[in-house]
Amino acid sequence: MTPGSPGDTPPPALSPQEAAALAKAHGLTPLGARPAFGDYVRSIWRRRSFLWTLSQAEAAEKNAEDRLGMLWTLLNPLLLVVSYFLIFGLLLDTKRGVTNFIAFLSIGVVVFGYSSAAITKGTKAIVGNMGLVRALRFPRALLPLSVTLTEFLMTLPAMAVLLVVMLITHEPLTWRWLLLPVALGIQTAILAGLVLMGARLVNVARDIGNLIPVVIRLLRYISGVFFSIDRYAEHHPTVQACLSLQPLALPMDLVRQCLMAEFPVKPLEWFVGLGWAVVLLGAGLWIFWRDEANYGRA
């Protein structure tokens, strides 16, 4: 029998209209249709334990790579603080106007390190997990969100070291330390929003993935990781405001206000941070959701 001979040809296909009518008559749901935004956010919330499972799995996967495992989450920021201290503290002397430069620098390195890791890895959350995307069905936003959560979990040991550094460098233990979780919450929401936007962008145009580290590097140098924006730009109020209120610089300032006596709490900055968190997370979810039906497309 030759292919296509009578008897084994497929039955005539229904027209698209007939197919749609049949589907409607039997209550079938169309595939590849994007759920309503509200439903989408609710489905993410319902799957929050899956989010937790994914994040733990990713953290375990990362730690399984190296022999020292979890220890690297402490060693890396410590080594970075030491090398930055050598270059910016001793060689270039950027500590102008900061009394406790070691504490200042450590906060910068750890807090920005979290931003940098979350954005670098989170924006690849879809393209890097194509296997998972094409194997299982779940709200895709869980992937970038889980990477953000993973990076948060992996920053916690470094945060603990940070507190020890504060005490060693004679920072007083005050009620302001209690604001630290709020500052980290604001930062995490900001990062989740940026990561959601970036994940969609990189999924559409992979080449952009190569630019992300460059952008992060640039931000590292202008965000006040190792110098005080306020004191370097004090004669240019506009520049100062732009530099210190941008979403990646602000969390460092907030954490410094929590932990260091020489940085008084500025309520305005906290409200701006809260604003960034709400706006960026909302916009990130919305922007990511717009493309929900297309992740995994070949």
Binding site: P16, A19, L28, L31, L132, N294, G296, R297
Partner: peptide
């Protein structure tokens, strides 16, 4: 529902579960 079709439409009843030999989990 894992690879969206370029053209055409698919309707299903219920939740599909795909078991692939290449379904890489982690």
């Amino acid at each position: 529902g894992l690879i969206p079709p370029t053209r055409g439409r698919i309707w299903i009843s219920g939740e599909p579960s795909l078991l692939g030999v290449n379904a890489v989990l982690m």
